[in-house]
Every structure is written in structure tokens, then in C-alpha cells.
Design a protein around this nucleic acid. Structure first.
Lengths: 207, 207, 207, 207
DNA sequence: GATGAATGAGTGTTCATTCAT
DNA sequence: TATGAATGAACACTCATTCAT
């Protein structure tokens, strides 16, 4: 995977800086490469295209993020019974430090993926996370008695939720701050959704 | 002024299509005008710049949206007492149909403003809505006993909330669906935040 | 000649302002015409081209200037005898007020001709004045005993002399000031040239 | 740095030709590079802008000219006493061959600087030479008893004087011819100005 | 492995001029 | 007389990519 030629290293470092500053599309390959101390010819010895360079930067982190979020989500299933929802917190909150650590140690890559990827295959990354998530969670919702919540609305909320993660990543918060913020947001969404479900339940029975 | 030029109409239509597809920055003025059946020279008889063209498309809608959201927000103040928070719904929910109607009838313009405006003066539009909102709401939070919620976290949530509006706009939902969705999301955020505030209150007293 | 349509008048006024500010080439016909309150179509009803517009502004003044300078020059012939050179002043200095008056009352046109005409047929106007002048003066020089002065050098000096006129026109000096300045410059050139001729005479005799 | 690129050479040659013919502003970069046998992309591998190309052509010559004229001017101060003005010639005339050599060997560059630089930072080059000169010479004039000459008039004459240099450069004269011409012009200006000063002295005493 | 020369299509913008109405 | 719509070529400049060396 990572043939650590020092040339490659230099190009990657310069590329990260430029992509971070201008985004994929508006970053100039010319400047990336010459800031790294090389010429465009050298670059094309390592990568086939500008996009492949972006990929090299974020691919691993992207995969790890998918995996991490997947493991968190699948952990929920154990609690997905109506009378255990109040304990769902634990399943998630236990994972929070892991998530925060991951964010802190991959912040730049995550920023690239979440906010600088316009024009690459990561463009709809957040959406795919949401889609993926929903597929996993949908069956649980029924068992948890949340089937009254409209699917599109749920998708909306999940997108908003992942949007919050984007923001946390984009901000310059430290580890503890991140844990606290995600925790609070999690409470808002969790209790909010429960409250919505309860209310709809009431209405249905009344009808 | 001269709204009834068919050329202008053709350019605007073509521009809307291209801006929607590629965003302001990546849309080619060249292709916009030639798709409209004209030359660049013709275009510059109507608009001074590419940005002015974008403006012509969205300016009015943008102003109306700001006004509409402002009138909704300012309506809240009457209910901003701790024991009346449960009635806050009414103030907002009464306005919901107006908001939905606005979205339905200005959908394309709103998409341009909210997701395709990179490179124009509308670039930070959502952020400015959030900032504006926070300024108006902050004093209410204290009176409502929600001062325990961290400001950054609150900003995060508000950004997510407006992000939801973006999504509603981006999706192709009909009027009733939109009303329902925003209503549900509103409940989730409202009750979720109240629940977070209560929990923090408890913790503070324990400490 | 001058069909004084008010439209024409307005266009000429606007054109003068723009040509003065940006020069012929860099002035925009578009702006000239729209500043005058009309459209390009109207303009082309009066003039065949941008250049013709410039011509309309300066043609008369240009001709008058040629005539005036010609009359001054030809007045010298009476004094063009070696022993009357010291009286040549009179011939010129008598005309000075006329020249100054002309400059003051045609200043803008003269500026256009002398410094803003790049790209028009007036581009080499000063040069043609010089050429014209030399043709007239050459025969006198012999009679005046100035034949020792190299012709190219003389041309150089005449160009410089007319360059001074340009500067006087370009500056914002008043009538009296102009008279004084040209008078002084005239003395410098006249006595300077005489002194050069004398010196060359001496050298020739020595040789 | 990399002076020996034949491409660069070809571009510079073509550029010189075009700048000479049309001046900086009206020369087309497109035509410069395609006449050189290349594309615009190739050009921008060597220079950052059209202006930088002009600079590459004339920068060195410009600096050398400033230096040369400076050294000539500063040499005058030794003679700037009223009773030594007649020897000022020597100081200047000794330098004449150097000046002529410089002109002959940098003729094209000098033409660019003096008459084709509109739109570049060399635009007011002659004016700055004049200004610079006046600053240096003003104190000498007092000591030399020439304080009676009006400052504006003096500036006029200096501008004309440098205009003569422009012409010498513009013409296609050989070395000896140039020396002779500048020499003669110098005599005209010098003796002419002295004569003007004397005359004013007389008038003042009379008053 | 790396260079550096070169391409060619692209960007938004300005211009003087034409012409049907 | 004047409009206003449209042209088409020109402008300086940027870009990702190719390739012989």
C-alpha cells in the first residue's frame, strides 16, 4: 500500500495542505507538486491523476471511519427492545471515547472527506453513511417500537446527525470537548426521537 | 426590469439548469449561453458578470426567506418563559404551512442558495442564518432556563437544524409531506433540547 | 459641417471626456454613448466609426493649429538674414499672445491631439508639424548663416521644441503664465542655437 | 537564470518585435507566442504574466541607464559655481562617449522603455528621470546664479531635454553621430539657459 | 525516478460593429 | 431618429495531463 518514498511523502503533505485550503477542485496540482519541491512529471510517476492523489490521502481513514461507525451501530442491536431503550445510551456512550480519539487523530483526513471532496468519489460520502446506517437500523426500529416515525423523516434526522459530526470535525475542539459535544447531541437526538415516537403512538391510539 | 425578454428568459433557464447541476463555480458561462442559443456577447448585454446572473436568479427568494424566517423567530419571544415552553410549539407550528408553501414554490431557487452558491456572496448563507438566529434566541434561552446548554453545542444543533431545512428543500417532497417533516423534526429538536437541559440541571444540583 | 443635433452634441461632449481620461484606444465607445444617454445604434447614425468620432472632435482645431503655426513660421522669413537674427524675436514674440489665446481656448482639443491620439491618424501629429516646419525653415537657415547646424540635430531640437508646447498644453497654466513660459523657452532655443552656430563657425574657420 | 532555453529566446525575440511594433498594451500575447512557434501554455511556463515578460526584456537596461545618468549628473556638482559654468561642458562631454556606447548597444531596450511601456511600471520612466534630475540640480542652480529661472520652465526644459534623448534612441544613428548630436543639443540647452538667466538678471536690476 | 517542455481546451470578460425594427 | 439585440473575435491567464529524455 504505502511505499514510503520520501518524494511521495512530500507530495502527500503538500497535497493535504492545498486540498485543505482550497478543496479538491480548486487546489492546483501545479502548486501542490512544486510546493513539495518536485515537478509534475515526478507526480505522474506515482499517481495516475489528481483524484488518485486525493484518494491516497483519505482512503484508509475513510474505510476506518466506515468500520468504526458500523461497529458502533451494530452494537446497538442488543438494546433494541422497547423496554431497553433507556439503556441504549450505554452502548453508544461507551464507544464515544473511541470515536473522539479517532476524530482527534484523523482530523485533517476527515475534513478532507467531509468538506473538501467536491469533485471526487467522496462527494456524497455523508449520504452514503446515512444510507448505510439506515439499512442497518431499520429492522431495529420496529423492534424498538419506533416504527411510527416516518422513514424519510428518520433519514433527515440521521443526515442532520452526521452533519453534526462534520461540524465537530471541522471545529478545532479538543478530545474532552468533542466527547461532551457528541454526548449532548446524542441525548438531544435520542430523547427527541423517543419523544416523537411516543407522541405519535398516542395519536394513533386516539385514532 | 425588462423581465419579458425571451432571450433573458432563455439564459436564466439555461443558467438555472447549469447552476443546479454543477454549482455556481463549476458551471461554465460559455455553455450556459450557448445552450440558451446565444453568444457570450449577448449575455453581457443583460448581465455584468456571472455572479450577477446568479443573483438575478436567487436574490428575491433569498430576501423573502430571510424575512420569513425572521418573522417566525421573532414570534417565539412571547413564549420564552420557562413554564410556557410547552406552548412554543404553537407559535412555530402555526407558521409551518407558510414555510412549506414558500419552500414548494421556490424550491429551485432555494436549492441554488443553500447548496450551489459556492463562490458567490451566498456562500455562507446558512451560517449567517444560524448566527442571526443565535443572536435572537440567546437572551430567550436564559429566561427559559436553558442556560445550561453549552453555546457551541447549541450552535451545532442549530446548524444541524437548518441543515434539515436544506434537505427538505433538496428532496422532492410535496407540501403536506414537508409540513409533516418539519413538524416532526421540530419536535425532536425541541423536546431533545429540553431533555438535555433538564438532565444538566440535575447534574448541577448534584454537584 | 457641424449639424448641431443635440444628440450629436451630447455624444461629442461625452466622447471628449472619455478620450481625455483614457485616450482614444482605451476609451470605450459603449460607455461614451451610454453616458451621453443614447445607445450604440444612435451613434452609428452619425459616425461611421470610433475614429471618425475622434476626428469630429479635433479636426477643426487641428487645422487651425497648423495654420497658426504656419503663419508664425512664415512671418520669420522677413528677418532671416544673418544680421537681423537678433530681431527675429520680435516676429515671434508679437505672435505669442495669439498662440497663448489659442492654447487657452482650445486646450482640451489640443490635449486630445497631442497626447490622447494613439491609434488615430493624429498619432504622429507632432512629427508632421516638425516635418512641415523644417521644410519651411530650411531655406531660411542658409540665408541666416545657420547652415552649419546639422539637419538631424535641428530636427531633434524642433521636436523638442514642439514637445514643450505639448507640455504647456498639458499643464494647467493660465494665459499669462503660458506667454511667459513659451517666451522663455523661445529664448533658450533661439540663443542656444545661435550660440551653437557661432561655435561651429569658429571651428570651421580653424579647420 | 536559465537564459539558454531556445524557447525562451524565441519568445523574447518575438515579444521584442511585437512590443516594438505595437507597444506593451496593444501587443497581443497570443500572437507573440504563436509567432514564436509555441502556445500560451508554454509561455506561462517561463513567465508569470505579460508584464513580467516586458520586464525580462528591459529590466537590466533600465537599471543601467538610471545608474549611468546618475553618475553623469552627480559629476556636475564639482563645477556648479557661477564662475565655473563654462567648464561644466567638460564634465558632461567627457561622459558622452559612454552614453553613446550605451545607447548604441541597448537601443531596442531603450526604445521599449522610453516609448513602448504604456501599461507597465516603466510608464512614467522619463518623468521620473526628470524629477530625479531636478532634485539633484536645484541646489546647484542657486549656487550657479541661475535661481532666476522659473522652476516650471526649468522642468519643461528638462523634459524636453530627456525627450531629445528619446529621439536619439529612436532614430537609427551610429555612435559618432549620436555623440555629435547630444553634444550639440547640450550646447544649445546650456548656453540657452545661461542666456535666459543673464537676461532675467538684467531685467531684475532694472526693476 | 524525475525533469521540464509543451499542449490544448478551458476560464470570465470586453470590444467595435451590424442590422432589423 | 434611435433602439436594442446580437455577433464574433479578441483579451490575459490557468489547468490537468503527456511524454521524450
Amino acid at each position: 500500500m504505502t511505499r514510503n518514498s520520501s518524494t511521495q511523502e512530500a507530495i502527500l503533505t503538500s497535497a493535504r495542505r492545498h486540498f485543505m485550503k482550497h478543496g479538491f477542485k480548486d487546489a492546483s496540482l501545479n502548486r501542490i507538486v512544486s510546493d513539495a519541491g518536485f515537478t509534475k512529471g515526478a507526480f505522474y510517476g506515482y499517481y495516475k491523476s489528481k483524484e488518485e492523489l486525493f484518494d491516497a490521502l483519505v482512503e484508509q481513514t475513510s474505510e476506518e471511519l466506515v468500520e468504526l461507525l458500523g461497529s458502533i451501530t451494530s452494537g446497538w442491536s442488543a438494546y433494541a427492545e422497547a423496554d431497553q431503550m433507556q439503556h441504549l445510551d450505554e452502548a453508544f456512550f461507551q464507544q464515544l471515547p473511541r470515536l473522539a480519539d479517532f476524530i482527534v487523530s484523523h482530523r485533517d483526513d476527515l475534513r478532507l472527506i467531509l468538506t473538501k471532496a467536491q469533485g471526487t468519489r467522496y462527494e456524497g460520502f455523508t449520504d452514503s453513511l446515512v444510507e448505510n446506517n439506515i439499512e442497518h437500523i431499520e429492522p431495529m426500529l420496529d423492534r424498538a417500537g419506533l416504527s411510527g416515525v416516518d422513514r424519510d423523516t428518520y433519514r433527515l434526522l440521521m443526515t442532520a446527525y452526521y452533519g453534526v459530526l462534520s461540524q465537530v470535525v471541522t471545529g478545532d475542539y479538543g478530545r474532552e470537548r468533542i466527547i461532551r459535544m457528541i454526548h449532548d447531541v446524542q441525548i438531544v437526538f435520542q430523547n427527541g426521537i423517543l419523544s416523537l415516537a411516543k407522541q405519535q403512538d398516542t395519536q394513533e391510539k386516539a385514532a
